[in-house]
Design a binder for these strands. Structure first.
Lengths: 236, 236
DNA sequence: CGTATTATTGACTCCATTCAAAGATAGTGG
DNA sequence: CCACTATCTTTGAATGGAGTCAATAATACG
């Protein structure tokens, strides 16, 4: 039994996130070649860093399980949460144009991740012709997400919180989790740091949504009772 | 004489933007191979589109001269100006992960641009090994810029306007233009659409900066009189 | 020159922040 | 197991900064 577990190597070729993560869009042969270079299933605990702002850029990371936050700390002591990361999402290429990471990736709970080392990148591109194209697509998707956040930053507190919850709900559904009941792994303060609101405003807005019958909120546990209603907050 | 002008083909190999644009980081041989596939110096007038939101994604564009805006129009009729584009800047990869452009690129003045067609991309990557790497870096830089905007969106009107002016000033300097006197090719409304402010607030803030002795403002003409002072608005 | 667009300026309003205090929860050690 | 503490969350009241509405001024353009 132990032997069987031991022999079962976690790898990109048998990963259930293949439709979301880096293998997406690659041929089976390409995934196999990629898989050889990817280091899988590295474990960290809540609060631990995957990489730190200022570290040398040496890898692209894929979240395998659990969730993380991508944060930038400014010199005034504010924490800006640039994104909340779910399984299958890639990070690291926000920093590829320079040699130091410009933000930190921090586990929000027990988490495992996979690593593609950058020093093998150029060589690997030769063996996996689609790799560069797919990485560009992932990078492009990250730009698109950022642009969505810029646009969202111009809306009201209610719209921000509603969009945040629905975006989370959608992304959880895509990964096979419940889209109507989930734990937000962020504190009110962190939600505020993500949306550009104070934690008091986040608390009040969630309370209001509960009063309106859109949600049940019990601290970190969110139950979406009226997805349509919630969506209507930011739709015309 | 006409013959000489005619023979002088605009190309990446003799472009003065080689330290900023796509050739950056490529070997001379690579630039030559790239240059064959790049269509140079396409002209458009103020207000004309380089590409439109919804168009099929078929090219990556480099601004050659003049300036442009990257805009996303939402269903409520608001125009979100995602970025102001200067010579040497690349656009198009914000949309690479899908087949339709998710925003429009519009000339703010008479403008010329160069095009790398996407259908030649994969083949070109073989002949220009560094191309994928450099495109990823440019894409990464776009993510970084977006993240900067997300962080800036949480600051006050004064900080937003000051950051915007200094960022513009810095980027103009890098391209050999004056960093202390320049024309903003955007109306007050457009500056507001970019920064998430109303045009009245933009007007008032510029006025205030003039009172404080940081700027001289004559409609679109900006003269920065105290760069340090202006910078101190958002520095501790 | 006249008209349309863009920019300025003022007065008022409102939403989110700030300040403050109390309540709930998780974690620790006796 | 309970008490104790630190942390997180809720809630209230007051403040302030940017938005809104409105009127005027300046500029561009045909």
């Amino acid at each position: 039994m132990d032997q069987i577990v031991k022999d079962f190597k976690v790898s990109c070729t048998n990963c259930t996130l293949d439709a979301i993560c880096l293998p997406r869009g690659l041929s089976q042969q390409e995934v196999e070649n990629l898989s050889i270079e990817v280091k899988n299933n590295i474990l960290v605990q809540k609060g631990e860093y995957i990489y730190r702002q200022g570290d040398e850029v040496n890898m692209i990371v894929a979240i395998k399980s659990g969730s993380a936050k991508l944060v930038s700390n400014d010199d005034q002591g504010n924490e800006h949460i640039l994104s909340v990361l779910l399984p299958g999402e890639l990070i690291g290429f926000e920093s590829l144009f320079q040699n130091k990471y410009n933000c930190s990736a921090v586990a929000l709970e027990s988490l495992s991740f996979c690593v593609l080392s950058m020093d093998k990148f150029e060589a690997l591109c030769a063996r996996v012709p689609g790799l560069a194209r797919e990485l560009l697509k992932h990078s492009s998707e990250a730009i698109y997400e950022s642009q969505g956040q810029i646009i969202a930053s111009k809306s009201s507190a209610e719209e921000k919180v509603a969009k945040f919850l629905i975006s989370l709900s959608d992304r959880l559904r895509k990964r096979g989790y419940s889209s109507v009941q989930f734990n937000i792994m962020l504190s009110r303060q962190e939600i505020g740091d993500h949306l550009g609101l104070t934690f008091e405003t986040v608390s009040r807005t969630l309370k209001q949504f509960q009063k309106d019958g859109f949600l049940n909120v019990q601290r970190k546990l969110i139950e979406i009772k009226d997805l349509q209603g919630l969506r209507s907050i930011y739709t015309v």
